[in-house]
Simulated scan of single mutants.
Amino acid sequence: MTEMPHSGKALVFTDLDGTLLDHDTYGFEPALPALAMLAQKKIPVILNSSKTLVEIIKIRSALGNCHPFIAENGSVVAVPEQTFPGLAQKDSLFQQQSGLLVKRLGGDRNTVLAILNRLRQTHGFSFEGFADMKPARLSQVTGLTEAQAIQAGQRLSTEPILWKGSPEQWEAFTGHLADAGLGWVQGGRFISISRPFDKKDGVACLLKLYTADTGSVPLTIGLGDSPNDQAMLNMMDIAVVIRSARCDQITLNQPHTVIRTTAKGPEGWQEAMDTIFNT
């Protein structure tokens, strides 16, 4: 594949766990050469994950990344104030938080928790959410340290759960969720409950901002490894499916170019960038 001719107008949207980050160690070192190349070309790498705002801020710092990002499966969009000057005045839903302008596309988590608690009390559905877990339990089920688990629990729009009921009960549960205006996304370990938002919604929000800022539609490159990345990848000009246990479940029909890597995680991320940019 030839090198991208309009590098200044390209955007990279990437999942984290199992994609840019190793599924087990959360390391990203094998992708450092590609990240350095993209930085040199001034191509923004936009993180798009089920992780929380505070989790991504920490990862972003480790990566040396200063670009907008998407948290909680598309429900939360965060933008550095200097990226789009005047954004807070143009869109009052972007509120200052943690030194960023943050928009909760998916609404407020407290609303989600109230609905989940009502369904549990009324129908006896069996599930365990992050809000139900103390740090030690959250650490146990996520594999994170207790400090990291606390950050994972600091959610703004969504509530991840572990389902403990039967398939029949799940069908009834999702019906009640829909009646209450909520949806669900199956992640790698947890089911995320929120208003019906997806990673693609966060991407659409940022694409609109970048298009308005530059006056042209950017070329988009997206990377993901699991079915919850499918909608995001289908929006891309170049979609990269990183090898994983569930990558074969991703079916794409929209992107102009689809790349499926032979390597997993950050090794696959590097492999994809080498292919795209002929490095």
Rank of each mutant, 00 (worst) to 15 (best):
T2V: 13
T2Y: 13
T2N: 11
H6P: 06
S7A: 14
G8C: 07
V12R: 01
F13L: 07
G18Q: 04
D22G: 04
D24S: 13
F28E: 07
L32Y: 12
P33R: 10
P33M: 06
A34H: 02
A39W: 08
Q40V: 12
K41F: 09
I46N: 01
I46E: 01
S49A: 11
S49Y: 04
K51G: 05
L53W: 08
L53C: 03
V54H: 02
I59S: 05
R60Q: 13
H67M: 13
P68E: 01
F69C: 04
A71Y: 05
E72K: 09
G74W: 03
S75P: 03
P80K: 02
P80L: 05
P80N: 11
Q82H: 11
Q82G: 07
T83P: 03
G86Y: 01
L87T: 02
A88W: 06
A88Q: 14
K90A: 15
K90I: 13
L93M: 10
L93F: 12
Q96M: 13
S98M: 14
L101M: 11
L101Q: 04
V102K: 07
R104M: 07
R109M: 04
R109P: 05
V112I: 08
V112M: 08
V112C: 04
A114N: 14
I115P: 01
N117R: 15
N117D: 14
R118C: 11
T122A: 13
T122C: 10
F125V: 13
S126F: 09
S126G: 10
M133G: 08
K134E: 15
P135F: 08
A136Y: 04
A136E: 13
R137N: 12
L138E: 00
S139H: 03
V141N: 00
L144Q: 10
T145P: 04
Q148M: 12
I150T: 12
I150P: 00
A152C: 06
W163I: 10
W163M: 04
S166D: 08
S166G: 12
P167E: 02
E168N: 11
Q169W: 00
D179I: 12
G181C: 08
L182I: 07
W184D: 04
Q186C: 11
Q186F: 10
G187E: 05
I193Q: 01
P196C: 02
P196S: 04
F197P: 00
K200N: 10
K200H: 07
K200S: 15
V203Q: 00
V203R: 01
C205Y: 06
L207T: 09
T211A: 06
D213T: 14
S216V: 14
P218T: 09
L219K: 07
T220R: 00
I221P: 02
G224F: 12
G224S: 08
N228C: 05
N228L: 11
D229W: 01
M235E: 14
M236E: 02
I238L: 13
I242E: 01
R246S: 11
Q249W: 06
I250R: 00
T251R: 05
P255Q: 02
P255K: 08
T257Y: 11
T257H: 15
T262C: 12
T262L: 14
A263G: 05
A263Q: 15
E267R: 15
G268L: 03
W269C: 00
Q270Y: 04
A272V: 07
A272F: 03
M273R: 06
N278L: 13
